[in-house]
Amino acid sequence: MHASATKGAIAAARPRRRWHWALVLPLGWVTLVAFLAITADWIGLPDPAAQELILRRKPPSAEYLLGTDNLGRDMLSRIIYGARTSLIVGICAPFLGFLVGGAIGISAGYFRGKIDLLAVGFIDVLLAFPALVLALTFTAYLGQSLFNVTLALGILSIPAAARVSRANTLAWANRDFVLAARTIGASNWRILTREILPNLLPPMFAFWLVAISVIIVAEGALSFLGLGIPAPQPSWGGMIADGREALDVAPHTALIPAAVMFATVLSLNFLGDTVRNMVDPRRSAL
């Protein structure tokens, strides 16, 4: 019922044709990337770790479609294998964070009192602990691996998710429709899942999509500090970190992974917008 105006005010004038483009292009790209990442082993790509030092930093050519990197490895192969790594880290780490953090945040914001105090304390400790120290400890103590890096970045995204969900829950928990649900005797569980969660999802979802890109880049930052996925396994962030070395002599070594990453996060977010508009409960109430 809130939304009856929305259509009139904002969305009505949007031509239908645009919807399709906004859906088809990003969907196509994401599907392509995901497909290649999954099937990388079977599509006849050269070994992403195979070096030909003499042929380092070659620009794109017929033989090497995306050129070669600092150690003369096929960039195309590394981009595709890198997609696998980056997508696993980028999707799983924030997902882990949002699952744990979201649950903490919602309970804290809704129940308040002791639970809130405890949750906030927990988040505060996690947050107040410098991310760098945590990531360093993780990788130094448990060793550098895809799993550990994902876990470290996942834990690092718990507090943010928790705070965002708590703040939003705080704002929604005292709204009329929640109070109304409470007066008619709805259970806490019901109120949380039916009244509050749907309102939380849009901002959380938007944040998650952004978080994917942030995490993919963060993995690159870890690589830059020497704490990322161990070589020679490629990741987009790590490739950019390596490519930075030759930014002026062979810009493609950094720009190609950056461009691929850009296209992917952009697609994910456009898709996100579209999906959100489609599933927005108040919009569908129309």
Binding site: R14, A221, F224, N269
Partner: peptide, 28 residues
Amino acid sequence: RPGGIFDRISASAAFGFLAMPNFMLGIV
């Protein structure tokens, strides 16, 4: 105007910067 020209361009610009790690942006 969500979904309008400005929205799309600003979103693209935003993700362009987001996909740019700070260790690269700094040197650029």
